[in-house]
């Protein structure tokens, strides 16, 4: 029978004679860190997709994505706020690696967006793993599913297999 993260934490806490409240703090911090990490990816998508769409590449597709990413970012900011954490500062366009290249061609933009969506899926899965609030878990699962659907759209536009894996783990 495999022990879970919570059991491991408790075992570690017992050995160090840590109070239960300290263990709760560890989980609280993990939830905040992972939710902030997802929000950072969503914020990057918001800035990058706006820039790419404004350049005229994948305009219609990315406009639809932007509306959905805004809703994802808003719920993540709310979840962080409920945990007493501030959202990360959104990145500047110049600070997003690969964005300048993504503005050069449709193929480059598709590659950039697919990589971003894959990172988002992986980040959501880490957050789902670390979060204990079941409402937040469910909402994040819903957002992750939509990002996976966006990834399918991008793969098809790129002429790739839209569903290459039975288990989607992202990056």
């Amino acid at each position: 029978m495999r022990s879970t993260r919570r059991q491991a934490l408790l075992a570690a806490g017992a050995s160090l004679l840590l109070p239960a409240s300290a263990l709760a703090d560890v989980e609280h911090d993990q939830a905040k860190a992972t939710l902030a990490a997802v929000l950072k990816v969503e914020q990057t998508a918001l800035v990058a997709y706006e820039a790419i769409a404004n350049s005229g590449v994948l305009k219609d597709v990315l406009r639809q994505f932007l509306d959905q990413e805004r809703q994802h970012a808003a719920q993540l900011a709310d979840a962080l706020d409920n945990l007493g954490a501030k959202p990360p500062i959104p990145p500047r366009r110049a600070g997003i690696p690969g964005l300048d290249n993504a503005l050069q061609s449709r193929a480059a933009a598709l590659g950039f967006a697919m990589e971003l969506e894959s990172r988002a899926i992986a980040a959501y899965q880490a957050a789902i793993d670390a979060t204990v609030d079941s409402n937040v878990v469910r909402t994040n699962a819903g957002a992750m599913g939509t990002d996976a659907q966006q990834l399918v759209i991008l793969r098809e536009l790129a002429g790739l297999n839209p569903v290459p894996h039975a288990f989607e783990t992202g990056a």
Binding site: R5, Q125, I128, I153
Partner: peptide, 21 residues
């Protein structure tokens, strides 16, 4: 159970992709 939750997350993502296709 944490590892179960992670498994379910990877499947939800895959089922969402199926629906999209």
């Amino acid at each position: 159970t944490d590892n179960v939750r992670r498994l379910l997350a990877t499947i939800i993502a895959a089922e969402s992709e199926h629906a999209a296709v």
